[in-house]
Amino acid sequence: MSMTVADLTGLFNQLAFTPLDWVLIELGVIGAYIVFGIAGFGTALIAGPVLINFMALSRIIPLLVLLDFIAAFGNLLPSRRSVVKAELLRLLPCMAVGCTVGVVFLLNLKSDILLLLMGVFITAYALYSLGVKIRPTQLAAGWAIPMGTIGGLFGALFGSGGFLYAIYLNSRLPSKVQARATQAALISCSTIVRLSLFLLAGVYAEMPLLLLAACLFPAMVVGSWIGRSLIMKLSREAFVRLVTWLVLASGIALIGRYLST
């Protein structure tokens, strides 16, 4: 069944965004994928506080999963030979369980509760990132169970569980190249699992959501390209720390917004 210009116009009208809204949304997505290009995760931490002013969290996460699906494979392809399969296979089953539970919560909790939970989650993550100076030199393999499960849960519920995978892999693998490649593979698998669960739940039956994803695709490409370029020119640690301060401010703002309603 072909789509006419009138049909497309009707879908755009359903989105109900002003020109200024579009600018803010596009900039938020570009910023999110700059961070993704550098750190390999964190799109919802950056885009979430922007997008939540225009749509419910239960729509934001499926939207970002669609974009993450493409971006993650873009990160994985150049480094796929460095993936440590033993660690990947250790984390995958736990991640799948966490994703399933997270999707159920996301589609059934009230939006105001999700707003508060996201604010608390983002604030806690930022405070942890800023406060913890020393990472464990070596985690036991058994840590894959809580890290994988909670990472999957946070990934489905808030769109960002990648920092837990990063903590685990960076403590397990001596090579940063291996850790980054394995994390990219895990994020790719995570997006496939979440995408499949959202498809089964009928989330992507909404044409306006698919149209919005298509409109934001160029912003994702631009942001990812900038992020991969920046990582070659500046300290990843310094950039991520600056972004973490911005994430902290966003989390506090979300909690404030919940308390003021």
Rank of each mutant, 00 (worst) to 15 (best):
Q138V: 15
W22I: 06
L91E: 05
L24A: 13
I134V: 15
F36C: 00
V65K: 01
L24S: 12
I38M: 11
N75M: 15
S79A: 15
A86H: 11
V132H: 07
A144C: 09
K85W: 15
T43A: 10
L20I: 13
V103A: 14
L88H: 13
N108C: 06
L130T: 07
I30P: 04
I52V: 14
S111W: 02
V120P: 03
L77W: 15
P146S: 05
I46F: 08
A47T: 01
L153Y: 04
A32Q: 06
P146I: 07
F154T: 14
A44G: 06
A71P: 15
V97K: 11
Y125D: 03
G74S: 13
P49I: 05
L106P: 00
S79L: 14
L115A: 12
A32D: 06
F69I: 14
L107M: 15
L76Y: 14
L107P: 00
G142R: 08
F36P: 06
G155T: 14
F36Q: 12
A86K: 13
D21W: 01
A47F: 03
V35W: 07
D68I: 08
V23C: 10
V23I: 14
P93W: 12
F36R: 13
T123L: 00
R90N: 10
P146G: 04
A96D: 13
F121S: 00
A126G: 00
V29C: 06
L117P: 00
R90C: 12
V65G: 12
G42N: 08
I61H: 03
W22Q: 08
G37R: 10
A47C: 03
T43F: 03
L27I: 07
E26L: 13
S58L: 14
V84G: 07
E26G: 14
V132L: 00
P78N: 11
I34K: 10
G42P: 03
C99K: 07
P146A: 01
W143Y: 09
P93Y: 12
L64D: 07
L109K: 06
P49D: 00
Q138N: 12
L91M: 11
G31C: 06
V29S: 00
L139I: 01
P19S: 08
V50G: 00
D112C: 00
A56L: 10
R81F: 13
M55E: 01
K85R: 15
V104N: 14
I122Y: 00
R135M: 12
L64Y: 05
K110D: 11
